[in-house]
Write a protein that binds this DNA or RNA. Sequence first.
DNA 1: TCTGGGGTCCTAGGACCC
DNA 2: TCTGGGGTCCTAGGACCC
Length: 414
Amino acid sequence: MATALIRRIAHLDMDAFYASVELLRYPQLKGLPVVIGGGRRSADNALLQTHADVPLSRIPVADFPRLAGYTGRGVITTATYAARQSGVGSAMGLMKAAKLCPEAILLPVDFAEIRRYSRAFKDIIMDIAPVMEDRGVDEVYIDFTHVPGGQRDGGRVLARLIQKTIFQATGLTCSVGVAPNKLLAKMASEFNKPNGIAVVFEDDMQTKIWPLACRKINGIGPKADEKLQRLGIRTIGDLAQRDVDWLIDHFGQKSGAWLFDAAHGRDDRPLVLESEPVSISRETTFERDLHAVRDKAELGAIFTRLCEQVAADLAAKGYVGKTVGIKLRFDDFKSVTRDQTLEHPTGDAKTIRQVAGQCLKRVPLAQRLRLLGVRVASLTRLGEHDKDASNMAPALMSKGSIALYPVAQERQLF
DNA sequence: TCTGGGGTCCTAGGACCC
DNA sequence: TCTGGGGTCCTAGGACCC
């Protein structure tokens, strides 16, 4: 006789992932405030160069670069728990963090290493529990329902097995929440961080979920939270007390109904096991704000490089796209986007550059810029459209908008 | 001391077609 | 001549997430 299976969805995320990966390389930093961010690791990394003759684990702590005196526009990617004590955290500007915790050690992100560990922990999970949704570099959802051991102790036994296996293989810890659905599992994984497990059942709503701030619901961000607070709603319990129609009146049909369901712990979204990308983009924030006229040469070079990078990314992933767009951010942090859809998809850097240049002409450029981005969307897999399409002239050409203008007017802005 | 980079999804208006 | 829906595509902006 079969026992009834209850839906057990796990959310797992790696603890302070980027920082923890660095600590594997530099164990002498364990327990110290370390902050990751600010730029890419490069071959001429000063620390590595001056200590070329010493094993990495023997580089003296005193020789590591500090946050103090940092200038630049970087932000924190991850901070160790020791650094979080000082109030610094993800997405905080490094210059602000330097005021709060000047003695913190600042290390750049090693993307290659991060990708290696990301693949490693996901491979381990797939071996144990193959129904997994990838939620980025350090997070996944896993369906425990039909996995051997997935029902034992509400999922705790399998969660512990996964934690232990990942730790033995990589030296990294993670936190897991197990619940009837993704919404609750995501919240549960935060309960016992770091290296924790939390199990939530439907009956735990009132005691474990309702006391939490609305902001803990994945999907309620700063704006929605502010509006909820204005309406006197602070906790998920407060939210659950309002009726659907009232929420729909204030937040619209879709959001209102969703808020209501979320407050009652209802979420029937399936795990998404595979997905196709919607867009591929590159953007960069300049070291100083640039002016469209005065810094034209510099901007032009950056613009071209972004287009080349997007083209290279498309090629590497095997996609072409029909919509080319740009994004600008001005010195007051306001941003605008412009895009244009071609008749045929492209992956060609020159074509992307040209269409992106057309988009740029539609933006008034009196203000200085702090960011420029290039995006290609409406993607199709290379080979799933006309063979010649990627080599074809852009649609603009056939529409005549270029041919009709005098050459002087047609000059690219940068 | 201003606030990275790579994404997804939603909304809303207008064009265009049936 | 006027009055309609509905559906799809395109564009712009914004919220949110990792």
